[in-house]
């Protein structure tokens, strides 16, 4: 076995040269590119991490704003609800007050209507009663319609003040006596006599027929009226019945 030292040396040099060539033109650029890619990947990851953190911060901020908006919305809604409740209460109170006023007014109207109806019914009843009484009185005898009223008429004249009484039938003026029918001479004389006695001087009488009186006598003077008739009585009764003091 023979080892060629020239070949051994040349091969050693060749391999060392190849080590330098590959180290210079292969391993160095490739490892540099790998390192550059790792740096780029690291930077990209850092940027992604930063972007992620930024996005997370934005999300947190957005959530915070959303929570703030929700709180503000809730606050506004609560205020609106409270205001609406207040407005509702005010409207209800106003409506109740107005309804009470209307109800009171309606009750007052109803009461007034009922009172006026009652009054109308009472008037109607009075008039009906007076008419019934008047018709009943018309059935009295003719004498009774005059003679029985002379004393009452004279008493009414006697009750007049002196000045008024003095003016009745003074200066020869006949005393106007109203009656439901024309008086007979006896009735005229009876009236004249009793009036003269009451007045203390002689007088003359004149008769005015007024069927409305039904029965009785009345004297009209410029300053007084003496009434003693069924009509006057019925008028007083009707006035008494229809007086609405309540």
């Amino acid at each position: 076995m023979h080892i060629d030292l020239w070949t051994l040396g040349l091969q050693t040099i060749n391999v060392l040269v190849l080590v330098w060539i590959l180290g210079r033109f292969f391993f160095r650029p490739v490892t540099a590119m790998i390192a550059a890619r790792q740096v780029a990947a690291t930077e990209a990851l850092d940027e992604a991490q930063a972007a992620k953190a930024e996005a997370a911060a934005e999300v947190a901020k957005a959530k915070e704003e959303a929570a703030s908006l929700t709180a503000a919305r809730t606050d506004i809604l609560q205020k609106a609800v409270a205001e609406a409740e207040k407005e509702k209460a005010a409207l209800l109170a106003a409506a109740r007050t107005e309804a009470k006023t209307l109800r009171d007014a309606a009750h007052a109207d109803i009461d007034r209507a009922r009172q006026s109806e009652e009054m109308a019914e009472a008037d109607h009843a009075c008039r009906l009663a007076v008419d019934i009484a008047a018709r009943l009185f018309e059935k009295l005898p003719a004498e009774a319609r005059v003679m029985s009223f002379i004393d009452g008429l004279v008493a009414g004249v006697a009750a007049l003040p002196d000045a008024t009484r003095t003016g009745i039938g003074a200066d020869g003026v006949p005393v106007c006596i109203k009656a439901a029918r024309d008086l007979t001479e006896a009735e005229k004389e009876a009236c004249r006599a009793k009036l003269a006695q009451t007045l203390g001087r002689p007088i003359s009488v004149a008769v005015a027929v007024d069927p409305v009186l039904i029965a009785g006598l009345e004297i009209d003077t410029p300053h007084a009226v003496v009434r003693n008739s069924f009509r006057a009585d019925l008028d007083r009764i009707a006035a008494g019945l229809t007086r609405h003091d309540h």
């Binding site: 080892i3 070949t7 051994l8 040396g9 091969q11 050693t12 060749n14 391999v15 060392l16 080590v19």
Partner: peptide, 12 residues
Amino acid sequence: AHIETDAALALI
């Protein structure tokens, strides 16, 4: 396949 080359590598 020649020992000189292998020896060169081993010497290196």
